[in-house]
Design a binder for these strands. Structure first.
Lengths: 182, 182
DNA sequence: GAATACATGTAAAATGTTACATGATTTT
DNA sequence: AAAATCATGTAACATTTTACATGTATTC
């Protein structure tokens, strides 16, 4: 699926692996992230499969850059994926919830500490979303300033914020209940 | 991490791989699920590592059952994991959001169709949570009727419901906005 | 007659993470 | 002096999914 994230970005403009990592971290990170190494491997595979092509640009002061661009085949693969409806619900894998589920034997104070830590982490995350939203009008997101693109991008941001708010609300309720009645 | 889900259940009572799959589907499925094949492989590995032991019970009319039970080492491994705070936020990987992010070139009607399908799926999911909550007092969840266990179990259920409600709310808002202004 | 429940597994492929390796330039 | 930015990759490992393989008994 990382495949389509990469094709999606390359559909706007040619990029290096490094560029793609930065773009993902600055935009899709809430709902799709990947490590550098995985990005480089996937790009190579997509080139082998004929969905991408690349050129190597030599640099003297920095390491050489390999710039990938999408091919016609890549474009039509992306477009057919975009047209296909998503028939499954995304699968959540949440360590905190798993831990909480089995935490009956853990003492109340430790449990509360764990939940408060998560509250901090989610609050930080929410703040970073707000920062991204306000800095979005800046220059980082190079060619996403086209109408529809920006519009949909904002919709995914809204989801991220709503999700974090819900998580924090649930943590607050759960912390309060445990503090009172556990 | 599936490791701890399995140890967590086996900490209550010995089970077969098949039992564990059913238990997970009926309780942790919102935040942790696994395929049968993965469960069998992981159980085998945990036995090799000395965290579990098993006995084979022969049956005539059904396939033989391999019943796993947790060892002392397994118990202390589980407990030390439970005591450790969760220092990361769980990573979301959501295909719908990824697709939406790149859907500027897709026509409005197709987009709306995709979002409405997801709305149906999430509504179904939410309903299945409500059913689980009401059937929880029944006999399926064998020994989870202990006070604290049940309490924490309910907390994770509440999260599941809140999450689905938020998702549906976001879908409704996004559908409305696209229908009006896209 | 078909589907579901019971019951276990192997093999291959796909996906993802962590660690390692290199090395100049710029910022703190 | 240390850390971050730019820039690319390999190798090992861990995790997860999908497909295959088998076979009875019960329920719809």
């Amino acid at each position: 699926m990382l495949k389509y994230a990469l094709l999606g970005f390359l559909n706007y403009e040619p990029c290096t692996g490094y560029d793609l990592k930065r773009k993902m971290d600055a935009s899709t990170a809430f709902f799709w992230r990947a490590e550098m190494s995985q990005i480089y491997m996937t790009l190579k595979k997509l080139e082998t499969d004929g969905l991408l092509e690349s050129d190597l640009y030599q640099q003297t002061e920095r390491p050489d850059r390999r710039v990938y661009r999408i091919t016609g085949t890549g474009r039509s693969d992306l477009r057919s994926w975009l047209r296909q409806p998503t028939t499954e619900i995304h699968t959540v894998k949440d360590t905190l919830l798993l831990k909480l589920f089995f935490s009956a034997q853990i003492d109340r104070e430790t449990l509360l500490m764990h939940l408060r830590l998560q509250r901090d982490l989610h609050t930080q995350e929410l703040e970073s979303y707000h920062e991204m939203i306000s800095s979005a009008s800046g220059g980082t997101v190079t060619r996403l300033e086209l109408e529809h693109d920006q519009w949909l991008w904002a919709a995914t941001q809204r989801f991220g914020a709503m999700y974090q708010e819900t998580y924090i609300r649930w943590l607050d309720e759960t912390i309060a209940l445990i503090a009172e009645r556990f």
